[in-house]
């Protein structure tokens, strides 16, 4: 099966500092790829390049077999993202924000689609609430709702459960697995919760100082580094650096 995302030799330099250094990986259809690494490893910059927000210094990004730079509009209409570090306009209600997103991506039957997503993410109680009044957990659910609302083929998730309580976090993980199963969605996933990464990821890429230092399934990686689990591998690599 052809990969849905192909990243080759991706490099980003800011002056003398190299944030991402020759990173290459693929994401296959329906796969969840975990992107792991300590702070400053280059995960966020990689995300931003994949979303077309930062221009790479070198290398290429292809999605659906097309180059991101040349086919930006076509590709980004099939991609969405969620991050703990973004927000949405505070003076709009949660539902108004979803409506604007739906319109931006050219969805039809917007009301029905919003109803579906609101129900899936259990947002009924705050769908008419102003975004500025949402708790951080509700805000995370709203940005996730924004991400799945547009029925993307690829989802980039940057610590999607970081501010959620264990119950909601569990439901969100179940929902993501369900969406992935039913819609064949591919996901690039980052989290500092190693158990979550083990549970969610089919494969892991470990970044350190902008470079890929390990790549494979959880089992392959733990065996290669002679550790019991991903957390021990993370600690070993992070402390060695």
């Amino acid at each position: 099966m052809l990969p849905i995302v192909e990243v080759s030799g991706l490099t980003k330099r800011f002056g003398d500092f190299t944030a991402v250094d020759g990173v290459s990986f693929e994401i296959r259809p329906g796969e969840i790829l975990g992107l792991l690494g300590p702070n400053g490893a280059g995960k966020t910059t990689t995300f931003q390049m994949l979303l077309g927000l930062v221009t790479p210094t070198a290398g290429s990004i292809r999605m659906f077999g097309k180059d991101l730079v040349q086919h930006r509009e076509e590709i980004l209409s099939q991609v969405n993202f969620s991050s703990t570090y973004i927000s949405m306009p505070y003076s709009l209600t949660a539902e108004e924000n979803l409506w604007v997103t739906a319109k931006l991506y050219g969805l039809s039957d917007i009301a029905r689609r919003i109803d579906e997503v609101v129900k899936k993410l259990e947002m009924e109680e705050f769908r008419h609430k102003l975004t500025r009044k949402l708790s951080s957990g509700q805000m995370t659910r709203l940005t996730l709702a924004k991400a799945i609302l547009t029925e993307p083929k690829i989802l980039f998730l940057d610590e999607p459960t970081a501010s959620l309580d264990p119950d909601i976090a569990h439901k969100i993980r179940a929902l993501l697995k369900d969406v992935r199963r039913s819609a064949g969605l591919s996901i690039l996933y980052t989290s500092h919760n190693m158990r979550e990464m083990e549970e969610m990821s089919d494969r892991i890429i470990f970044l350190q100082k902008g470079k890929v230092v390990a790549q494979g399934t959880v089992q392959e990686i733990t065996e290669r580094f002679g550790q019991r689990d991903l957390e021990e591998v993370f600690l070993k690599l992070a402390r060695e650096s």
């Binding site: 077309g52 927000l53 980004l76 991609v79 993202f81 973004i86 306009p89 931006l104 924004k146």
Partner: peptide, 17 residues
């Protein structure tokens, strides 16, 4: 307004030109 509401990423990571 887009800067204040930290919404620029949402806009420019969408197909918006």
């Amino acid at each position: 307004e887009e800067i204040w509401s930290r919404n620029l990423m949402n806009l420019f990571a969408s197909p918006l030109k």
